[in-house]
Design a protein around this nucleic acid. Structure first.
Length: 808
DNA sequence: TTCACCCAAGTTTTT
DNA sequence: CTTGGGTGAA
């Protein structure tokens, strides 16, 4: 963030003669070494519009970073005249590192290299005052005269949580039933408008019926309210900048002149607002280089427009289109399978990926009885790969990943891996800064920095519980509104007026005084790490979690400690809050060798020697929704997701599906994914888990056989799997109940139970544990390795003795 | 005001 | 089967 601070675009542009001198200086260009001809063209075609169509694994980041280095090295632009935008902080960081490595430390300044949002924050802070509230009288709205009518440079960036709460207030104020018209869905609608760069007055009349005919009205109120609070949401960062560029040609021109070269990563993921922003900036010189892959566009559901990339040549006539088609990642069969699959999509720009890595393993396809068998088999397969049981040689766990369509699929794997003690890491779960306790703590910090932050006030005024319920909070709101002051001052006023009764008043006074004290400490410049600790102590927040008996409480305290530790890297609380608003990364603990589990979306841009793609069943992948709604378009997006999944694999890609799956607690029989039919038989090897057709064998025995390598038979095509009698038999177990022949659930009478409370028991899945409670045939067991679970008695056996070793 | 219970609903996610 | 939110009683 601080990277740009010393780079005012309005200062010190190089004169032309200076540029010429720089250009004349010959230098070796090591960054060009080893580039293939297409990559080289992408680097050396510096002027005019360039569209780099870079297929999966074709070295686009390499080309992109070399291009930046080349622009600087040839003197075309000073580093900070280059604008390079990415979607994620991770991509930005990687590019920064690589450009830095290419150029060495010897250059002045750095490129404007960041996410769309971080660049926009920088720009918007300079021009915040140009965003003003629309005053064309809306009776009854929430305008308060004493508040400023424009955004100010020190605006705060709201997170999703704040947005929702704000919208909820507006919905209630509009006398709408917040149950029928949930704030979440309004947030979705408004977000969609912002993604399309639509301000409230520009929302087309055809959409006037949105949100019970009041969508646009609430949108306008929401935007007003944000300016009152001197706040913006994520969508505003782009929307406001587009608005400024459109309404203030002078401002736009300055930046058009300043950013001489523009580079865009993942262009297929841009939404309309981002597209307009780019087009406005590039309009003058047209030195824009967009890199993308239409086949990897998987964010349509959140506003990304594949159309942006498809019509690049129309937007920028004479654009040079460069295709990167040599794939350096995957072996032949993997690439062939992915290419064939994606060829079912229409309206592609079209690429033909090829590789020099001939041969290698075919894509493997395997059907399982149910989701648990699938998890079990994959766990064993991962351990087999680790031992080097396959041709590709031993793999570390870090080299293997499981990519799922929906996050709820992760659970089966976590459960299984926990019980067999296989280390794993979940990527992209709830992020650190989105956790409840972290947001609460941050709200306290926000109040300390700016006591007028009403949203922060609302969040923590009664956390921990201070006996301030809805009524008390309404009183505070009323007093504050009448006096036209912040909620904190309103609270103070309410206490003085005696409007808050009982013991709540004393606790509230304590809270208000606390905030005043902490704010004073911030102003004094007191050490912010110590102050943060003090705040959490004095507010009773730490104590609240210490007193909490739920199993999560220790973890939350641990997170709070981590938060305080993270503060050390910053100069003060303000700096920290600014950073966190945009960078919601969770630094995944590196180091230990672990299998990765993540969604397909989270896997974009990553690669692994071995990849497992479970759950390829109609209704799961493609998802039910994609099949029901959205028609061909959303089905094509699912197919691209499948393409992304397969192309993550370097050496081994294993696709699997299950015949039965528990969906919301109900057993359902599943059909294999339609995408499986689209894989080329010649590049696929069908594995058949023994026992799948046997009927009588238990799953454990079956997967044991698979695990030892025995009995894996090869089939001609995957269609054989689900046209076979065995598969049909699995389908015969219809929905509702557990597939009985397989599951062997034994219902036991409570008095026939072979064990009682306190006994040691064993379960195939969770290992050893102690019986806590028995309820009919459901037993609650505290397992040694995997915590407390409720298990049907039929799945348990009496454990020989508590001292026996756990066999994993 | 708060805690305990009942009920409805349930992709993908970055900033 | 979970989870979150809303309702009712202490």
């Amino acid at each position: 963030m601080s990277d740009y601070d010393d780079q005012d675009p309005f200062e010190g542009a190089l004169s032309l003669s200076q540029r010429a001198m720089q250009a004349a200086r010959p230098r070796p260009a090591p960054y060009l070494d080893g580039l293939n001809p297409e990559q080289r063209a992408a680097v050396e075609t510096m002027d005019g519009p360039v569209l780099m169509l870079a297929g999966a694994g074709t070295g686009k980041t390499r080309a992109l970073t070399a291009r930046i280095a080349h622009l600087i090295d040839t003197g075309r632009a000073r580093p900070n005249e280059i604008l390079a935008v990415t979607f994620t902080n991770k991509a930005a960081r990687e590019m920064k590192d690589r450009v830095g490595a290419l150029l060495g430390g010897a250059i002045e300044g750095v490129p404007w290299l960041g996410t769309f949002h971080s660049v926009c924050v920088k720009l918007l802070r300079r021009h915040a005052e140009l965003i003003s509230r629309d005053l064309h009288g809306r009776p009854g709205d929430l305008i308060e005269a004493q508040h400023s009518q424009t955004l100010r440079p020190n605006f705060t960036i709201l997170d999703t949580d704040d947005q929702i709460r704000l919208m909820k207030q507006l919905i209630i104020a509009a006398n709408m039933d917040e149950k029928r018209w949930p704030a979440r869905s309004l947030a979705g609608i408004i977000d969609g408008w912002k993604n399309r760069a639509l301000t409230p007055e520009r929302v087309p009349s055809s959409e006037a019926s949105a949100f019970n005919n009041r969508g646009t009205e609430l949108y306008a109120q929401y935007q007003d309210r944000l300016i009152t609070l001197n706040a913006v949401d994520f969508g505003d960062l782009l929307l406001h900048m587009v608005t400024i560029f459109q309404t203030h040609p002078d401002v736009l021109e300055k930046y058009q002149r300043w950013f001489r070269y523009i580079l865009v990563d993942e262009y297929q993921d841009t939404n309309i607002a981002q597209y307009l922003w780019l087009r406005l900036l590039a309009q003058g010189h047209r030195n824009i280089c967009c890199v993308g892959d239409d086949d990897q566009s998987i964010y349509g559901w959140r506003g990304a427009e594949v159309g942006n990339i498809l019509r690049f040549e129309k937007d920028f006539p004479g654009a040079k289109v460069i295709r990167l088609e040599q794939n350096y990642r995957s072996t032949e069969h993997i690439l062939a399978a992915a290419s064939r699959l994606i060829s079912a999509n229409e309206g592609r720009l079209g690429k033909t990926l090829w590789t020099e890595a001939k041969g290698g393993q075919k894509v493997r396809l395997i059907g399982h009885w149910d989701g648990e068998d699938e998890a079990r088999w994959i766990g064993e397969e991962i351990e087999a790969l680790r031992r080097g049981a396959h041709d590709i040689g031993p793999l570390r766990l870090d080299d293997q990943a499981i990519l799922v369509r929906a996050s709820h699929q992760m659970r089966a794997f976590e459960d299984r891996f926990l019980s067999i003690g296989l280390p794993y890491r979940v990527i992209g779960g709830p992020r650190f800064y989105e956790r409840l306790e972290i947001r609460d703590a941050m709200a306290y910090f926000r109040l300390a920095v700016s006591p007028e932050d009403d949203l922060a006030f609302e969040r923590v005024v009664n956390t921990p519980k201070r006996g301030l319920g809805e009524k008390a909070q309404q009183t505070i709101q009323r007093v504050a509104r009448e006096a036209g002051v912040s909620l904190l001052l309103g609270a103070r006023g309410a206490i003085q007026q005696g409007a808050i009764g009982g013991k709540g008043a004393a606790r509230l006074r304590e809270f208000v005084e606390g905030v005043a004290r902490w704010h004073a400490a911030v102003l004094e410049g007191q050490d912010h790490v110590r102050l943060a600790e003090t705040i959490l102590e004095e507010s009773g927040y730490t104590e609240m979690w210490l007193a909490d008996k739920t199993p999560e409480a220790p973890g939350r305290l641990e997170n709070l400690k981590e938060l305080v530790k993270a503060l050390e890297q910053f100069e003060n609380l303000q700096g920290f809050l600014e950073h966190v608003a945009l960078i919601m990364d969770n630094d995944s603990e590196e180091g230990e060798d672990k299998v990765s589990i993540m969604t397909l979306h989270a896997a974009k841009g990553l690669e692994f020697p071995a990849v497992f793609l479970p759950g390829w069943e109609d209704g799961l992948f493609p998802s039910q929704r994609a099949m029901d709604e959205g028609g061909k378009k959303s089905l094509e997006e699912e197919r691209r997701l499948a393409y992304v999944g397969i192309t993550r694999a370097e050496k081994l890609c294993t696709i699997s599906f299950a015949g039965n799956r528990r969906v919301y607690g109900q057993w359902q029989s599943q059909m294999p994914s339609r995408f499986i039919d689209e894989l080329p038989a010649a590049d696929v090897e069908v594995l058949t888990a023994p026992g799948l057709y046997g009927g009588g064998q238990s799953a454990a025995a079956a997967s044991f056989a698979a695990y030892t390598g025995g009995g894996v038979e090869e089939r001609a095509t995957h269609a054989d799997v689900y046209n076979s009698p065995g598969w049909k038999r699995m389908q015969a177990h219809s929905t509702g109940t557990a597939p009985a022949a397989h599951r062997k659930v034994i219902t036991l009478d409570p008095d026939e139970m072979p064990f009682g409370i306190g006994d040691r028991v064993f379960n195939q899945k969770f290992g050893y544990g102690e019986v806590i409670e028995i309820e009919a045939d459901t037993v609650t067991v505290e397992f040694d390795k995997s915590g407390s679970k409720r298990v049907k008695a039929g799945f348990l056996s009496v454990a020989p003795s508590p001292t026996d070793d756990v066999p994993f």
